[in-house]
Every structure is written in structure tokens, then in C-alpha cells.
Write a protein that binds this DNA or RNA. Structure first.
Lengths: 112, 112
DNA sequence: CTTCATATGTAGATCATCTACCTATAGTCC
DNA sequence: GGACTATAGGTAGATGATCTACATATGAAG
């Protein structure tokens, strides 16, 4: 049957966009690279699966928080490079502030 | 239009159950009291709305993580008091561990 | 007798995330 | 030539907790 425990909802809603924005704020990157970065930095704790990643990237484009252009990777492949925009940086800052506030609040509850 | 910004998804999925478990781990409490506790401790940053709270309490009952019985409040009202079970404490510990791992991972990404 | 705080619940919508699938190419090994 | 892996981008459909809004009831206060 291979029922696989399926660790549902590994990432809190809205967090993926924040992590993507943060990642491309360090420099333009393609989707595959973003996924690798997230996995590498978190030692595999977090992973951006394709089914979440690409829709999230599309949302960021639609909202104007990122731009994309096709270009060659160092290894000679075509890939879509995403870059953060000014509004993306604003959004990132806002999301991080929200996240930290909620995170602090949860921390306070768990300490009690 | 009154489009109301509606701060969607204030609480990450699954977190509410953890916060409820934590709250009733300090002593049996009724739903209204749980909501107040969460709001008070977090200075209003977090709030467990009825539409989220009561379904979450039902889920905890169904899973055996909590038990409930009707009793009188100090002010002479009928209320349903929820108490944590042994499996609830286990679940709480597991959730907290998960939360902290993810929290750390996100922190690492945001620091970079 | 009306209003407010307390107290419990339901109905329906939202929507990001997840699993699982498909396509394509460059490089390597046989 | 053929098979395979890593790289790269994407879609389809399901899930399901959370949210907004509503409905109900009662004790206390004015």
C-alpha cells in the first residue's frame, strides 16, 4: 500500500513566498536553484517541491514582486532566472516582520 | 466594495491545535477561556476565533488528545471544560518539536 | 427590557500547499 | 546508438485547517 505518512503541510501558509523572496534577494536565481538553496541551507528540513514552488513563483510574478527572464546557466542550459523587484523587497520585509511577530507570540505561549 | 484586507491565515496550519494543547496542559479550561488565554498571553497578536477554535477542539476530542465535560464556571455558567490526555501530551511534545525544527530552519534561511 | 459579556457552536469559502504526473536536454557510461 | 542521471520547468487535482459570518442562549447591569 505504501501509505506513506505524508508529512502534510510542512510549510506554514505564505511562508514559501517569503523564503523565495529572501532567496532571490541574494541574487537572481532559477527555480531549481531556489529549491536547492532552501534544501541546502536548512539541511533538508525544508524543501520547496515543484508543485508548490512554480505556482508560488507565478504568484510573485503576477504581483510584481519578481521578474523573470530566460538565460543560460553556467552549464549551458536554458533556465528562467527570477529577480526580486523593489515591491518584492518591501513585501519581503513586511512578511518577515509578520512572521517574527507571530513567531514571538507563539514562543511566549509555549514558554508559559 | 468594502474589500477588507482580511489578514488571511493568521495562524499556520496545525499550530492552533498545538496552542490549545499547550493551554489546557496548564489545567482544564473551557473554550472561551482558551481563546482569552491565547489573546492575553500574546497581547492580541494571536487570537483563536470561534470558527477555528471549536472545530479544533472537536478534532482534539476525536483524536483522543483531550476530554471534555460540562461544568459550572466560577461565575455560575455552564461551560465545557477541556482537559488534556496522556496522548495529548505526547502529541503536544511532538508538535512543539516539529515547530521548533521548522522555526529554526526558517530562521537560518532568513539570516543568510 | 435592553444591552453587554460570557459561552458554544455551524455553514461555507478560501487558497496555499502537497502528491503525482509530464516534458525536455546535456552529459556520461556501455 | 541506447540507457540513464541530473538538471530544468511545469500542470492537475485533492486536501483541509483556517477564516468570516452567522445563530443561539443566559447572567448581570443599567
Amino acid at each position: 500500500m505504501a501509505t506513506t505518512k505524508t508529512p502534510r503541510q510542512e510549510l506554514p501558509n505564505g511562508t514559501l513566498e517569503m523564503l523565495i523572496l529572501k532567496t532571490i534577494s541574494l541574487g537572481a536565481m532559477h527555480g531549481y536553484g531556489i529549491a536547492q538553496h532552501i534544501q541546502r541551507v536548512t539541511d533538508g528540513v525544508l524543501s520547496a517541491e515543484q508543485g508548490s514552488l512554480y505556482p508560488a513563483l507565478e504568484r510573485l510574478l503576477n504581483k510584481g514582486h519578481a521578474t523573470a527572464k530566460w538565460a543560460q546557466t553556467p552549464t549551458g542550459r536554458q533556465a528562467r532566472f527570477y529577480a526580486i523587484t523593489a515591491s518584492g523587497r518591501k513585501q519581503l520585509a513586511a512578511r518577515v516582520a509578520d512572521y517574527e511577530q507571530v513567531s514571538l507570540a507563539i514562543g511566549r505561549l509555549l514558554e508559559a
